[in-house]
Amino acid sequence: MIYLDSNATTPMSPGVVEAMMPWMTEKFCNPNASYAGAKEARKAIEAAREQVAALIGAEPDEIVFTGGGTESTNMALKWLARWVGRKTGRVVTSVIEHSAVLKPVQTFEDVGYAVERCPVDAGARLDLDAFSSACRAAREGGGFASLMWANNETGTIQPVADALIHAKESGLAFHTDAIQAVGKIPVDVREVPVDFLSLSGHKFHGPKGVGALFIRSGCRFEPMVRGGGQESDRRSGTENVAGIVGLGKAAELARLRLEHDPHGRVTGKLRDLFEERVVEGLKGVTVNGDLIHRLPNTTHLSFEGCEAAGLLILLDDKGVACSAGSACMTGKMKPSHVQKAMGFSDAKAKSSLRFGFSHMTTEEEAERAATDLIVSVEKLRRVQGGNTGPVAIYS
């Protein structure tokens, strides 16, 4: 299989698997007990906390381990909603957030919170003027903002640092869903001093089912899950030691990669090679999203006269794994909320695919995948009788 769906998940690094194995076999002790094996488990958790903190420029005691990115995001948003209160509280976010943000925010709106979902441009990048206005409107009654660091469909990187300035000028707390960004590009909470940040291990070659929430020192916080008081009483429940160790190792390896290649040029070259081959080999191809501000591993393409559902089948038959650029709802391909916000027509949405590369992808795989994609598009166009126009590239 040529795996090009690294925005959905990533394969675990061999070093991560090796680090986790002892904690899934002979080292099974509960880290909250008092004997030697338990103390060893506690020490491993705290070492992982330091590794995760180092990846994002945080202090270890600002890291809370969770069951994944969605839980981390819900923990932050539900606390912030409680803190500001629904009578006067306002929520500022964008229209292209992940459902882990949009669905909690919708529940806040349903019970009386005022919510402002700010628009984006055709490249899926935030309209900062609209965001600034929304923050100013929230100033009087108090509120909070939540903005993703990078979009999961297009890879577009959002102007988080600038948005944070507008939020802070209006006295708003600020959360960022950095799940797609952490481990792929530099994310430093000292340089961009957000209050809360969500991350997930399986997006940067760690295990599934484990993530972390950064809570800046000094920020008020009340737990969503209460019980035995683990994680300094911020997230109760016996810790997933193996998962946490794996997350820590993945964070360490990601930090080393970023120190060597901070702009992701190695992965970006493969992505660019793949795009060039496809654009040169086919007419009617559009590269979607912001071509300047985007993750180095992601490309989102549309193919005139060619439905993505059929392409996925043909590519899967050839051993190429990727994702449709539109959500599958009740068996019908429909534009996702991100594509609607970018102004996609139904036809364009139905013809879109997302390809996600990683440092594990090889040049040979990128070349072969491009060839397989070209062949598949041409075959499907012949079957569907699609018409194609000149190449068009958004920026």
Rank of each mutant, 00 (worst) to 15 (best):
Y3M: 11
L4M: 07
S6W: 02
N7Q: 11
P11L: 15
P11Q: 08
S13F: 13
P14L: 05
P14A: 09
M20H: 02
K27F: 10
A36K: 09
A38D: 06
K43I: 02
I45T: 05
E46N: 11
A47S: 11
A54H: 10
A54S: 14
P60R: 10
V64G: 04
G69E: 13
N74K: 12
A76F: 06
L77N: 03
K78D: 13
L80T: 07
G85V: 10
V92E: 04
I96Q: 01
I96F: 02
H98W: 08
P104R: 04
R117T: 04
R117H: 03
R117Y: 02
A122I: 14
A124M: 06
R125L: 12
L128R: 11
D129F: 08
A130F: 07
F131M: 09
F131N: 04
S133R: 15
R136G: 04
A137N: 13
G142I: 07
G142A: 09
S146G: 13
L147N: 03
M148K: 13
N151R: 01
E153N: 12
G155L: 01
D162P: 00
A163H: 05
L164G: 09
H166R: 14
H166M: 14
E169W: 15
L172C: 10
A173R: 14
A173S: 14
A173Y: 14
F174Q: 06
A178P: 11
I179Y: 01
Q180F: 15
V189S: 07
V192F: 01
V194A: 06
S198Y: 07
L199R: 01
G201C: 03
K203Y: 10
F204Q: 01
G206L: 02
V210K: 04
A212Q: 08
F221P: 05
M224E: 15
R235A: 12
G237L: 02
T238H: 07
E239W: 02
V241T: 14
G246C: 07
K249N: 03
E252T: 03
L253A: 05
A254E: 05
R257C: 00
E259S: 12
E259N: 09
H260F: 09
H260R: 13
D261I: 00
P262I: 02
H263A: 12
G264H: 01
R265A: 08
R265Y: 05
R265E: 12
R265P: 02
T267F: 03
K269E: 14
L270K: 14
L270A: 07
V278T: 05
V279R: 07
E280Q: 11
L295D: 04
T298Q: 08
T299W: 00
F303H: 05
G305Q: 11
A308V: 11
L311S: 04
L312R: 09
I313D: 10
L315E: 06
G325A: 09
K334N: 13
A341R: 00
G343R: 08
D346L: 14
A349H: 02
K350S: 12
S352N: 10
L353K: 04
R354A: 06
S358K: 00
S358F: 00
H359R: 08
T362R: 06
E365W: 00
R368V: 06
V375I: 11
V377D: 01
E378A: 12
V383E: 15
G386Y: 08
T388N: 05
P390C: 10
